[in-house]
Design a protein around this nucleic acid. Structure first.
Ligand SMILES: [Zn+2]
Length: 278
DNA sequence: TTGTTTTGACCGCAT
DNA sequence: TATGCGGTCAAAACA
């Protein structure tokens, strides 16, 4: 039967894309979407800029949104694939903003710090109430400044100096993800994909939202990994880190990779966080 | 054989 | 109260 309330039945078939998962190509996908409807991997600034030119975006893509509405804030990221993206994760903590700290200070810490798995996660730190604005949006100009600063920091940090190198690297965040759902949201131009960390007992979930052109528009991480990063690929082929959870290897991986470095930062806020960057 | 993706359906919360 | 909506489940298909 169809869904009594939430889904299809409420509306005649075809009447709307409501709740209808986008035409995924029918069943049994594969680790390699191959000719995927979304060429996420190949999305570059160009297509995105085209959208901008068309005025598609309601909001500047370079905007950094720190959404901390949810009690357990989630990490939100909006990667749009360009060299700049990778070179500078425009993650900016409201804390940092308020305190006037370097927006990437925590990020830099994260670079030097061990992965996001924190052995004894103090519950208190989890539940810090975000006494912060729901989100913070920075302008393009600010973003540029961040890029410059970030570049400077990246170059001097030494640990992760070759940030641009990350761009060349295959997608990987060290964690394995399994897609467990996809949903076409009502007002969203893009379907939203839901991923879970495949590690046993790990509650972490990842929500990937794309734009109509296949660009990853937003990535939301929820929860905290309760395990160290599994560095070895699960499988040689489809199950590899890049394909798992990274419906598009480069996109997701890159996003996740930056994310990964960001995530320790989020310790400050909790187990979830939102970030968005170009 | 194992693990992932796809996708329709189900469930619970918010309005 | 009823409905809308988002998140999750689970079977089937696939690599
Ligand atoms: Zn995990």
């Amino acid at each position: 039967m169809a869904d009594r309330r939430g889904d299809g039945t409420r509306q005649p078939p075809f009447s709307s894309a409501q709740d209808r998962v986008f035409d995924g190509g029918g069943g049994g996908g594969s680790g390699v979407p191959g000719p995927s409807p979304y060429g996420g991997e190949n999305i570059d600034q160009g297509s995105y800029m085209a959208l901008l030119a068309a005025g598609v975006r309601p909001q500047p893509p370079w905007a950094v949104v720190e959404d901390v509405t949810a009690p357990p804030p989630a990490i939100h990221m909006t990667p749009h694939f360009s060299m700049t993206n990778y070179a500078s994760p425009s993650y900016q903590h409201p804390d940092s903003l308020a305190a006037g700290l370097h927006p990437y200070s925590s990020y830099l810490q994260a670079v030097n710090a061990p992965p996001q798995w924190l052995p004894p996660p103090t519950p208190s730190s989890y539940l810090q109430p975000p006494l912060l604005p729901n989100f913070v949006v920075i302008t393009e100009q600010q973003h540029h400044q961040q890029l410059l600063r970030d570049a400077a920091f990246g170059g001097s940090s030494g640990t992760h100096a070759a940030v641009p190198a990350t761009i060349e690297q295959p997608a990987k965040d060290g964690y394995n993800w399994r897609k467990y759902g996809q949903k076409q949201l009502k007002d969203a131009e893009s379907p939203r994909s839901y991923y879970k960390c495949t590690s046993d007992g790990c509650p972490v979930k990842k929500i990937v939202e794309r734009s109509s052109d296949g660009c990853i528009k937003e990535i939301t991480y929820r929860g905290r990994h309760n395990h160290p990063r599994p560095m070895e690929p699960r499988r040689g082929g489809a199950g590899a880190v890049s394909s798992s959870g990274g419906d598009n290897a480069v996109a997701d991986g890159a996003a996740a990779e930056v994310m990964d470095e960001d995530e320790p930062t989020d310790d400050d806020d909790g187990e979830e966080g939102h970030d968005r960057w170009v």
